[in-house]
Design a protein around this nucleic acid. Structure first.
Lengths: 103, 103
DNA sequence: TAACTATACTACTTTTTTGTAAGTTATTGC
DNA sequence: GCAATAACTTACAAAAAAGTAGTATAGTTA
């Protein structure tokens, strides 16, 4: 909690408050996914942003990355416990959007 | 829900997923506030970003703005019902940050 | 041997967000 | 007349986020 995060809410937003992070975490709630599958669940994301975002999430310990030493490459992503602890929030955000956009 | 929001979660993030919006909404949970007071609760925000953000929130119907025709000006902000419906989410995000940053 | 595969990286450009600093307003009180 | 006030605006600059397009990898399969 540094000076840029005077409020816990701000801390949370700095961690997951970007365009793609919540979306990736959300899709991983349903279980572990191969890189390509996960990316296809978010058709709008560019290859670069996908890689960059999962790297960020991994760095922050919200997801973990398992590499299988095969060719062609196989990489699987899954939520860490820290990532899983966001489940309620992610589902709430999704639910709110669903309800709100019907009005 | 347009093509940029294939997922409700994305819709929500596009609405409040910025640096300052959740923070402003959060502080208004405690009740209506004069512009200056609200801004002082977020010392890191610049004058410009504050005005810009409350304008956005007003445009999206999450807060309402009451102007008193006095000099010097007096402006009060409050949450709309739509804004209030975010209460659980905002408190969850704050709570998560509080718990998480202790680890 | 050449194409194919899934994943990722890089250089570069564009777009979006944020910040800085200065000005504007119209009344009050000195 | 002139400074002080609260809220806001504007022009400009800087920084961050996102997009585009091309390259690398190294076994497998045709």
């Amino acid at each position: 909690m540094n000076k840029k995060n005077s409020c816990p809410l701000n801390y949370t937003m700095n961690l997951i408050g970007t365009k793609w992070k919540p979306l990736i975490l959300f899709h991983l709630l349903e279980g572990d996914l191969r890189s390509g599958i996960l990316q296809k669940k978010i058709p709008e994301i560019s290859n670069k942003m996908f890689t960059q975002t999962v790297r960020d999430l991994e760095k922050d310990g919200l997801i973990s990355r398992k590499v299988f030493p095969v060719v062609p490459p196989k990489v699987e992503y899954s939520l860490t416990n820290r990532g899983k602890s966001l489940e309620d929030i992610l589902r709430s955000l999704d639910k709110w959007g669903l309800e709100d956009c019907q009005n």
